[in-house]
């Protein structure tokens, strides 16, 4: 009794030491390069500043500005007068479109690319190609494809009878959708790689057993592949949420710093940029960042809590 207790005790201590030492390098580096900046941002959110002069303590005033913006937006103020509300509304819609679609597409692509068929290599590379180009270049190419007489309208007109060409980039209704399409196109191939990796961890025996039981490919996909991929789905969804809610570069290129027609492509990150560098209110930018942080943290936390518990 006594000896086995000490055995467990020793093993546990060993595990604690091992765990802490394995994470030490990552934690130290991130404290130096990450948390200092984060604490600075927290500090900044209580100050009025213009980068050049002295900081001025203003208490919660910066947060008040954000809340007033939100209230004004809820009462239907035009977007120029409630930028944060506009950005938030847009980015939530955008995220609700992008994250599920990109995740699902990434799994589907990985599942297909993981099959032993001829030309599999070619398909894999073609799905991966969009991810290799930087998003600014991607956006530039797509602006051109999305033009009124561009290739996308041309293609849609051939697929959908009676299709009227859309001026995607200059339209209030379609700009956000166009940005979302570009994002999905670029990231689904990116996240495909994660799923390809995770699929290698699924034991073959499970598939073989399922086949013996007469389960078809679709059924195997939904009842074996997807559940076995759960931890990686958590990764892709969480990273997707973090990326989508902070989306900046696509909107910057496709919609411009002011969010394009009627602010249709305005995002919270654009608004934070504008606060920090066009209106020179870094304190307000920091306060808005904490609002965004709270939203990202809550959504990812809830998602992880529901699906992403550690195994032991």
């Amino acid at each position: 009794m006594f000896s086995s207790f000490s055995f467990y005790e020793k093993a546990r201590n060993k595990e604690i030491v091992a765990g802490l030492s394995l994470i030490s390098i990552a934690v130290i580096l991130n404290i130096v390069f990450g948390y200092f900046a984060m604490m600075f941002a927290l500090y900044l959110s209580f100050f009025k500043w213009d980068y050049i002069g002295e900081m001025q303590f203003v208490g919660l005033k910066n947060f008040e500005i954000v809340i007033r913006d939100l209230i004004r937006g809820l009462h239907g103020a035009p977007y120029l007068l409630s930028p944060f509300y506009t950005g938030l509304k847009n980015i939530l819609i955008y995220t609700a479109i992008v994250v599920p679609v990109q995740t699902f597409l990434a799994i589907v692509l990985a599942a297909f690319a993981n099959q032993k068929i001829k030309g599999q290599q070619f398909f894999k590379v073609s799905y991966f190609l969009p991810a290799t180009t930087s998003s600014v270049i991607v956006a530039l190419i797509f602006i051109w494809l999305f033009m009124k007489n561009g290739f996308i309208n041309f293609a849609l007109a051939h697929i959908i009878p009676g299709f009227q060409p859309i001026d995607w980039i200059n339209s209030r209704e379609y700009l956000l959708l166009a940005i979302a399409i570009v994002a999905i196109w670029g990231t689904s191939g990116h996240f495909m790689v994660s799923f390809l990796a995770a699929m290698q961890a699924i034991p073959k025996e499970i598939y073989e057993a399922a086949m013996l039981d007469g389960a078809g490919p679709i059924r195997r996909f939904f009842f074996i592949t997807i559940p076995m991929l759960r931890p990686m789905i958590v990764y892709v969804v969480v990273m997707g949420l973090i990326g989508a809610l902070q989306m900046f570069d696509l909107a910057w290129v496709m919609a411009g710093a002011n969010g394009g027609p009627g602010g249709a492509g305005y995002t919270v990150a654009l608004d934070i940029y504008n606060e920090a560098f066009t209106r020179i209110r870094p304190g307000v930018a920091a306060a808005k960042s904490w609002f965004l942080f709270a939203i990202i943290f809550t959504t990812t936390y809830l998602f992880q809590k529901k699906y992403g518990r550690a195994m032991r």
């Binding site: 120029l80 200059n170 209030r172 710093a257 002011n258 027609p261 009627g262 602010g263 066009t278």
Partner: peptide
């Protein structure tokens, strides 16, 4: 930036 936005909205008839 914001003046231009308002002008653009008016030009498009919004």
């Amino acid at each position: 930036g914001k003046f231009s936005d308002a002008m653009a909205a008016a030009m498009r008839g919004e």
